[in-house]
């Protein structure tokens, strides 16, 4: 187990370097941060050259990358071009997005798996068909449409919730945005667990458990669910990274000042240190979530052993 974790952590290093370098390349090589500093005006060449030297931008790209990574591992994510340190921005943005992600994952797990079990056990019945159609509709309507519609209906027309979220973003204000963020994944979780449950419901061990005379709820929760959850866990694990980075749309609609908001502003303003810094953290979160998923496999299915 310990050796497996170490091997996985070592395997993460090239992926981490690859992802961050790709983003670094996109931000620094495709865009021109110094030109962006001057807005629409043409920069004075001497000033531009001095800024480039100050910001280490006159070096070749790989040197810039090494320099940047060296600083990151000393805890220095640099300064955004407006003078605010990127670490400060992160300290204010990440807790908000983390809360939003927790709300979203909560709804995914509770509603998604419940619906999946109910429909999986009643394959072909009317409730199965209607939930299936509902998930199809939910998957098809893009997040930004559901976001605006739900905000309009619940926030503006009926006034059940605040249409926008205050800067502190407490949990109770994040319920609607969390649902909007979760909706598509929730539908996938429902469908995944439905398929998985329906497939395993015919398995021999379920028949054995029923034949032993175990009550139905015990067969479902102990035997069936545990064996059916593996694909669902994989999906939710990979979804954590997607939710944290994909909250850009949701955070924009509900005016939440989280990671997505900062990234969107950073990209629009060509604020390179912000973008690269945030993405680096997101990549780390994503990789760790994937590792966690693989370790959870062994818990769910004891046949899987990591040497």
């Amino acid at each position: 187990m310990g050796r497996y974790v170490i091997r996985r952590l070592l395997q993460m290093i090239p992926v981490f370097i690859g992802s961050t370098f790709l983003i670094f390349f996109m931000v620094y090589a495709l865009g021109d941060p110094v030109a962006a500093l001057f807005g629409d005006k043409a920069p004075d060449p001497a000033t531009a050259a001095r800024i480039r030297k100050d910001l280490y931008l006159d070096q070749p790209l790989w040197k810039q990358y090494l320099h940047y990574m060296g600083q990151i591992f000393q805890g220095d994510f640099g300064t955004a071009f407006n003078g605010q340190s990127v670490t400060d921005l992160m300290a204010s943005a990440f807790p908000v997005t983390l809360r939003l992600t927790i709300v979203a994952i909560f709804f995914e797990i509770v509603i998604g798996i419940t619906l999946g079990v109910i429909t999986g056990l009643r394959r072909g019945k009317s409730i199965d068909t209607s939930v299936l159609v509902l998930t199809l509709v939910v998957i098809s309507v893009p997040t930004f449409v559901t976001g605006y519609l739900l905000q309009y209906v619940f926030g503006v027309k009926w006034g059940w919730v605040r249409p926008t979220v205050s800067p502190d973003a407490p949990f109770n204000e994040l319920i609607l945005p969390g649902i909007v963020l979760a909706l598509v994944s929730l539908a996938y979780v429902t469908r995944l667990s439905r398929t998985s449950i329906a497939e395993n419901a015919k398995a021999d061990y379920v028949r054995t458990a029923t034949a032993k005379g175990l009550p139905r709820h015990r067969v479902v929760t102990r035997h069936l669910l545990r064996n059916s959850l593996i694909p669902v866990v994989t999906f939710i694990g990979t979804d954590i990274g997607a939710l944290m980075g994909g909250a850009i749309v949701t955070e924009r609609i509900f005016n939440i000042h989280g990671v997505g908001y900062q990234l969107y502003q950073g990209i629009l303003r060509n604020n390179s240190p912000t973008v690269v810094g945030f993405v680096t953290i997101l990549v780390i979160v994503f990789l760790l979530a994937n590792l966690l998923v693989d370790l959870l496999y062994a818990v769910l299915d004891p046949r899987i052993r990591y040497a």
Binding site: L22, G241, G245, V249, V279, L282
Partner: peptide, 9 residues
């Protein structure tokens, strides 16, 4: 590497 980058981002 490509999976590690959120798509919208």
């Amino acid at each position: 590497v490509f999976f590690g980058i959120p798509v919208v981002l």
